[in-house]
Simulated assay, not measured.
Amino acid sequence: MDLELDPEDAKIITLARSARARSGAQSGAAVRDTTGRTYSAVEVMLPSLRLSALEVAVAMAVSSGAEGLEAAAVVSGATELAEAALAPARDLKAVQVLLADPTGRLTAAYPTVS
């Protein structure tokens, strides 16, 4: 997918890539709230708690007072996101969720609101 990214969307992909690389995680995510603040995270895989990177990033935004999201990005080796994986972004009315490969190349864009 060769789409030209908005600079703010490219930024959240970069943040998700950085979080993933820094921790050695399989996936990273970043979200931008409606005030422009960004949050990045990786998945949590504990015996008693399993959260996707997107779930953690959304939880960080909500715990910081965000009431909505402009966009979200996930960076992983996955070629697509399951419908259920989009739920955290939908809850906060993100316009879209971007999926990028580990190099940061956009591979899919999922609209989350109609």
Rank of each mutant, 00 (worst) to 15 (best):
D2P: 00
E4I: 01
D6W: 00
E8L: 12
D9S: 11
A10N: 10
A10H: 07
I12H: 09
T14L: 14
T14E: 15
T14C: 08
A16V: 03
R20V: 02
R20F: 01
R20Q: 09
G24S: 04
G28M: 04
A29T: 05
V31F: 03
T34S: 15
T34K: 13
G36S: 08
R37F: 08
T38E: 09
S40H: 07
S40P: 02
A41Y: 00
V42E: 13
M45V: 10
M45S: 13
M45A: 15
M45R: 14
M45C: 12
P47K: 13
L49C: 04
R50Y: 00
L51R: 15
L54W: 03
E55D: 12
E55H: 09
E55M: 13
V56K: 11
A57D: 09
A57L: 09
V58G: 14
V62W: 11
S63M: 05
A66H: 06
A66Q: 10
L69R: 04
A71I: 05
A72L: 02
A73R: 02
V74Q: 08
G77W: 01
A78G: 12
A78L: 15
E80N: 09
A82N: 10
A85F: 06
L86W: 00
P88K: 05
D91I: 02
L92I: 04
K93A: 15
K93M: 11
K93V: 01
A94S: 07
A94I: 04
V95A: 15
V95K: 14
V95R: 13
V95C: 06
Q96I: 01
V97R: 07
L98E: 11
L99S: 07
A100E: 12
D101L: 12
P102H: 11
P102I: 03
G104V: 00
R105H: 06
L106N: 11
A108D: 11
A109G: 04
A109C: 06
Y110M: 13
Y110F: 13
T112P: 04
S114T: 05
